[in-house]
Design a protein around this nucleic acid. Structure first.
Length: 415
RNA sequence: GCUGGGGUAGGCUAGCUUGGUUAGACUUGGGGACUGUGGAUCCCCCGACGUGGGUUCAAAUCUCGCCCCCGGCCCCA
């Protein structure tokens, strides 16, 4: 038995990788259009970085190890922490706002299932040093554009506000150390499990029910009128900006919670229902994290897209990627012209044309077949017409062919 | 961590219930029919029982452990 990929990892064979690269390109292009620049950080970091960000609980799902210098190292389980670290270390005095995006693999030691791998890919973006509704709108707009640019049809973007919930939870007498526990139940909308917890804390029944009602505030942007105080006004602003930008594929859901403590205000998620259990394709919000890593407190908004999942969702929607192929396949009719054919393929390549040629000594019929399987636009047939300084150029799509002087083939193929 | 289903050539699969020819087909790949023309057809070739033990004269088939894959729960930054 041969050696397999480690559990939860995959080989990306050429067909698959070409597709992934193309969609990566789509995401990069959208980010570029939104004025973001790419950033890259190490694949491994000091384990401490992730513990600071997410709490000691992450350790059990971290690929962590000691290096030969006895340092505690971990493969990154996500990228935000590293980007914020890089910000604190080297970008904190850059002109604001700082808009960066990243793409890369992350690692989590979890049980693989649909859309969940141990090595997976995230595409994300952070806007740092700005805390305005415009900032949040910009992040949501870009996430929405990315999903649309990929061609996904079936998805939902839900926007909430963690500040509203935190405030309310504090107001009704839940101590800080039990907030996370309560939020977790609210996130899942497990009110029956939340009730006894709140009761035990000593929260009044009517306050508890009012809290549940708040998290049940779900619907179109019009439900914002029911959201009290500053947060309601703030979200209204965000939504107004989004509306002007033509971003209307959203709904309000104050039940959107997001796991972590450092989220401060707006939070949002996107999901693709076709995916089943692991349907979340994007998540983000506004946060402050830099002070945890020794920097000043800086407001940021960011999000990450689960690249593997969104591709899976696209596949389930029947979106197929068409292989690009090459421009020309050069075919020697006989051994007499074989070496000349290599001269011609070299010339095409020199001119920037993607050109291939048979290297297995095959005869014309099989070579033609190769031209076909490499998805070549043209076949360049090199035979006796070379004595007249010509080759035969065949359009593989239409089957039409004509004789072309050797020094005109580059121009002809370029059109 | 818990749980359901499943592993036969690169891919898809027959055989397994009832143990017994050389594990069969399709497809991909290589060669040829076809000495200057691809997608069609035909012929030939390469290629597999996840792994380790047990039962047996004999195991792809029965049995146990492990590994892996596909789902679901928990978790999900």
């Amino acid at each position: 038995m041969s050696i397999q990929c480690p559990r939860g990892t995959r080989d990306f064979l050429p067909d698959e990788l070409e597709k992934r690269r193309a969609y990566e390109g789509t995401l990069r292009e959208v980010a570029r259009r939104f004025g973001f620049r790419e950033i890259e950080t190490p694949i491994f970091e000091e384990a401490e970085l992730f513990i600071l960000r997410s709490g000691p609980g992450v350790l059990k799902e971290l690929y962590a190890f000691k290096d030969k210098g006895d340092r505690d190292i971990a493969l990154r389980p996500e990228m935000t922490a590293a980007v914020v670290r890089a910000f604190v270390n080297g970008m904190s005095n850059d002109p604001k706002p700082i808009k960066v995006f990243y793409f890369g693999q992350c690692f989590r030691y979890e049980r693989p299932q649909a859309g969940r791998y141990r090595e997976f890919f995230q595409f994300g973006a952070e806007i740092m040093g700005s805390a305005t509704p415009e900032t949040d709108a910009e992040a949501i707009a870009m996430a929405s554009s990315m999903i649309k640019a990929l061609g996904l049809k079936n998805y939902k973007i839900r926007i909430g506000h963690i500040g509203v919930l935190r405030q309310r939870i504090a107001d009704i007498g839940v101590p800080k150390e039990r907030t996370a526990e309560v939020l977790q139940k609210l996130d899942k909308k497990l009110y029956d499990e939340a009730r006894p917890i709140l009761k035990e804390i000593g929260v009044k029944d009517e306050d508890a029910e009012a809290l549940f009602e708040l998290t049940e505030t779900v619907g179109g942007v019009e439900v914002l009128s029911k959201v009290p105080g500053e947060a309601g006004t703030y979200l209204q602003e965000v939504v107004d900006y989004l509306d002007r930008m033509g971003v209307r594929d959203l709904e309000i859901d104050l039940g959107v919670v997001r796991g972590l403590d450092y989220y401060t205000g707006m939070v949002f998620e996107a999901e693709a229902p076709v995916l089943g259990a692991e349907k979340q394709i994007c998540g983000g919000g506004s946060y402050t994290l830099s002070e945890l890593f020794g920097g000043d407190k800086v407001f940021s908004t960011g999000f990450a897209i689960g690249f593997d999942r969104i591709l899976l969702a696209m596949e389930k929607e029947g979106i197929v990627y068409e292989r690009k192929g090459i421009d020309a396949y050069v075919i020697a009719v006989s051994d007499e012209t074989r070496k000349d054919a290599f001269g011609i393929v070299a010339k095409l390549r020199e001119a920037g044309i993607a050109a291939d040629i048979d290297i297995m000594g095959r005869k014309i019929g099989k070579a033609m077949k190769s031209a076909n399987t490499t998805c070549s636009r043209y076949a360049v047939i090199v035979g006796e017409e070379l004595s007249r300084g010509c080759v035969t150029l065949k359009d593989m799509q239409s089957g039409e062919q004509c004789e072309v002087p050797v020094d005109e083939i580059v121009a002809k193929i370029r059109n």
